[in-house]
Design a protein around this nucleic acid. Sequence first.
DNA 1: CACCATTCCTATCAATTCAATAGGATTTAA
DNA 2: TTAAATCCTATTGAATTGATAGGAATGGTG
Lengths: 144, 144
Amino acid sequence: MRISTKGQYAIKLMLDLAIYYNGEPVKIKDIARRQDISDKYLEQIVSILHKASLVRSSRGAKGGYRLAAAPEDYTIGMILRATEGELVPVDCAQINGEDCKNSDKCVTVRIWKRLNDAVNGVLDDIKLSDLVEWQNELIDQYVI
Amino acid sequence: MRISTKGQYAIKLMLDLAIYYNGEPVKIKDIARRQDISDKYLEQIVSILHKASLVRSSRGAKGGYRLAAAPEDYTIGMILRATEGELVPVDCAQINGEDCKNSDKCVTVRIWKRLNDAVNGVLDDIKLSDLVEWQNELIDQYVI
DNA sequence: CACCATTCCTATCAATTCAATAGGATTTAA
DNA sequence: TTAAATCCTATTGAATTGATAGGAATGGTG
């Protein structure tokens, strides 16, 4: 059970947008350089976030991306679900509408239900604005 | 982020061993039939559990497997860690001893730490004996 | 001792996912 | 018109998943 780089990069991307947006769209190349991620790969990831309406884009020269809403309006869960798909899927439950035929007499389902609640609980409890705060605290530490 | 069938099958296997052991080793073929899993695949999974000392085996005719300890001594986390590896690994942290070079100034690490604690908390809170109880309750429901 | 059921071990395989890399089409500010 | 950016889609190598397959080793039973 793991978090792919795609999801991790998506979070770093959103955090970068939250921190470095100053009225002008932020370029993927700049984000890629700052976060040390392949810019071509980041393009694909931001495309997913764009289709999910988490970011807005401006095309052409001087173009780039910005958040579609305020940092406190995003949870980490929202970002990860957009890029990674549903969190904690277990094949036996609700894969394209077809449950395991034993789901009503299979007790292991209770495990996955609890796990699902725990994971989504944690990830929906952390907001993008929290990351921004943490980042600022960290910078203060280094400066002082 | 998902749980593979290998982990799910391992849990079903352990539960089957807990329920159907009556003094004689339980055969993989019987478990496979009852749980509707390929017996050849189950062989590989039980082999992992055996190497992790979660089950004991008897070879030869009349051979089979039994739990190495009592059902209340196993947590779901123990079983899943044996088959799936560490739960919630994020490449940026502690992959073969080499951290991300930015780990001390990367705030996303805090997300993975919380997530890790939540997941392991839930899975280490559920014991194999809980599954046995749930299963028995379910049987009672059907019988009454 | 011979048989046969069982665990044990290893190889192979098709499909999918992961993590990029690559090339170029489209748009737009200057 | 040009350059810089987003946008779109294809390809690729490596790893993982979820098995299938074949046979060696073991040990109880007749």
